[in-house]
């Protein structure tokens, strides 16, 4: 597991990352969301040791992370690009060798990954000759060489078409199956919700929410929707509830006193038909908007 503890980074007077703590558990995909300038990239760069840490620490397993640990991590920087004028096979082998792989081993692994992303034929092409989507695939390959101990990916899905997203996701799932922790940042909430096991929300350099998607959705004050056979106006008179919306037979309430919803159900059944009584969980985008507001 990768653990980020009270991480802080200042640029001059501005605190870009302010005592941010979260965990990236093994075998889980952790999504890192937040608006522009929230501090996601700065945090990831500190985790990778590319940027100095002003305060706090990064733990790998149960000890402070070392250079060798980081060397075994896969990292995809934000504004990505490898060498534009070098054949993709050569530069991927180079990156793998820098990470400690032997040349022949690196070659066969790179070739295998290129095949897998449909780039086997283009191994000798210069990177700049490839389409943007394909360049992105090459970048992904660079980050998973050699089999990474952890993956830190800054906006890995930006610029990918849906098919490429799927093959990328398949690849990432393989690593999480092998207990590799994966942290990736994204602006695309729907994608994050679909892919992530866990979520960390950053706003203005602070962590404003963290947990599994359902934890986050359950975290707020519980809300219920009640649909009755008759008029629901009487709901306003019950104690411990705040009515957020009332429309004829339908009421949306927020529970302010524990157990108040039980009274509500009892009262409703005694008064007539109850068509629906459900817990309403906010969409991730709603939580995100509230958290980063």
């Amino acid at each position: 597991m990768l653990e980020i503890r009270e991480l802080t980074r200042r640029f001059g007077d501005k605190t870009a990352v302010d005592r941010v703590s979260f965990e990236v558990p093994a075998g889980l995909m952790t999504g890192f969301v937040g608006g522009n300038g929230a501090g996601k990239t700065t945090t990831m760069r500190m985790v990778m040791g590319v940027l100095g840490i002003d305060d706090g620490e990064v733990l790998w397993g149960d000890r402070p992370i070392t250079r060798l640990d980081r060397r075994s991590f896969g990292y995809m920087p934000e504004e990505r690009g490898l060498y534009p004028k070098q054949p993709i096979l050569d530069q991927l082998v180079y990156v793998a060798q820098l990470k400690g792989m032997a040349r022949t081993e690196a070659r066969s692994e790179v070739q295998e990954l290129l095949e897998r992303f449909g780039l086997g034929e283009r191994a000798k092409d210069h990177l700049e000759k490839l389409s943007l989507g394909n360049q992105q695939r090459v970048q992904i390959i660079a980050s998973v060489l050699p089999k990474p101990a952890a993956l830190i990916l800054d906006e890995p899905f930006s610029g990918l078409d849906p098919v490429a997203v799927d093959s990328m996701v398949d690849l990432l799932r393989e690593y999480t199956r092998d207990d590799v922790p994966v942290l990736f940042s994204s602006h695309q909430l729907d994608l994050v919700e679909r892919l992530c096991d866990r979520l960390v929300v950053l706003s203005h350099g602070r962590r404003v929410a963290a947990g599994t998607v359902s934890e986050l959705r359950d975290a707020g004050v519980p809300r219920f929707r009640l649909v009755l056979g008759g008029d629901a106006g009487w709901v306003r008179d019950l104690r411990g509830l705040e009515v957020l919306d009332l429309d004829g037979t339908t009421a949306l309430v927020e529970v302010q006193q524990e157990g108040a919803e039980q009274h509500l159900v009892a009262e409703a059944t005694s008064r007539g038909d109850v068509h629906e009584f459900v817990r309403v969980r906010p969409a991730l985008s709603e939580i995100y908007r509230e958290a980063t507001a």
Partner: peptide, 17 residues
Amino acid sequence: IEEKQSRIVEIIAAAIP
């Protein structure tokens, strides 16, 4: 500059001193 601009230097920096 090529390495700095393309940020490959971050990948390299994470791998070697």
